[in-house]
């Protein structure tokens, strides 16, 4: 019998290790993808671990009437925000260093696919944080506006406007870099 995520979390609340393993198996990909796109590959490993630690620590506060996925992404997103705040100063410094590094000739990437991946990651990373988090949850996690609003703690109207702004900003970036989107699509 396939148990729902919420049922499994209720079992986790009673200390069921197998239920935790099943939940982790179900959500490891989506969560890791979300963290990768929110904070980058270098921090995703740490935040992946930390998210599950928080899930276990806060297990008694999980309300089975809520969706587990929403709760999990809420925890992960809060961790991303905390990290963003703590690393703001370091990030400025890193940007300076990266700026200097990008002035030097870059090594040629191995494959076009890798180039595409890096370019896309850069486009995403260049989006302002509030736009990026909405876009990642909406497109890559395929969550509804209601769920995103709950995860981010903002009204649904704000989710909608941020999603539109994110699409517009991303389109502009891609067009500046690659040319019109339609051409890229046909290619």
């Amino acid at each position: 019998m396939v148990r729902s995520d919420e049922d499994l979390m209720v079992r986790v609340q009673t200390g069921d290790e197998a239920a935790l393993e099943t939940l982790m198996g179900r959500f490891k990909g989506p969560l890791f993808g979300f963290l990768n796109r929110r904070v980058g590959a270098s921090a995703a490993d740490d935040l992946f671990q930390e998210s599950w630690i928080r899930v276990v620590k806060a297990r008694d506060r999980f309300d089975p009437r809520r969706r587990f996925s929403t709760w999990l992404f809420q925890i992960a997103n809060n961790l991303c925000r905390d990290r963003g705040r703590h690393l703001l100063v370091e990030a400025r410094h890193r940007d300076r260093v990266l700026g200097e590094a990008s002035a030097a000739p870059a090594p040629r990437p191995a494959t076009p696919a890798l180039t595409d991946r890096i370019d896309m990651a850069r486009h995403l990373a260049a989006l302002p944080d509030p736009l990026r988090e909405v876009l990642v949850l909406r497109y890559y996690q395929d969550l509804s506006e209601r769920e995103i609003a709950e995860i981010l703690g903002i009204p649904r109207g704000t989710v909608k406007s941020r999603a539109h702004a994110a699409v517009k900003a991303l389109r502009q970036q891609v067009e500046q870099h690659d040319g019109p989107v339609e051409e890229t699509r046909d290619a």
């Binding site: 935790l20 490891k28 990909g29 671990q49 991303l170």
Partner: peptide, 28 residues
């Protein structure tokens, strides 16, 4: 088509195992 270029790998087995170990320890 552009967004799909951003493919993210699955977490490594070692990471998942280490996470499960830490989380399980807390569970008990």
């Amino acid at each position: 088509p552009i967004l799909e270029r951003d493919t993210v790998p699955e977490p490594s087995d070692a990471l998942v195992a280490a996470t499960l170990e830490r989380a399980s320890a807390l569970l008990h």
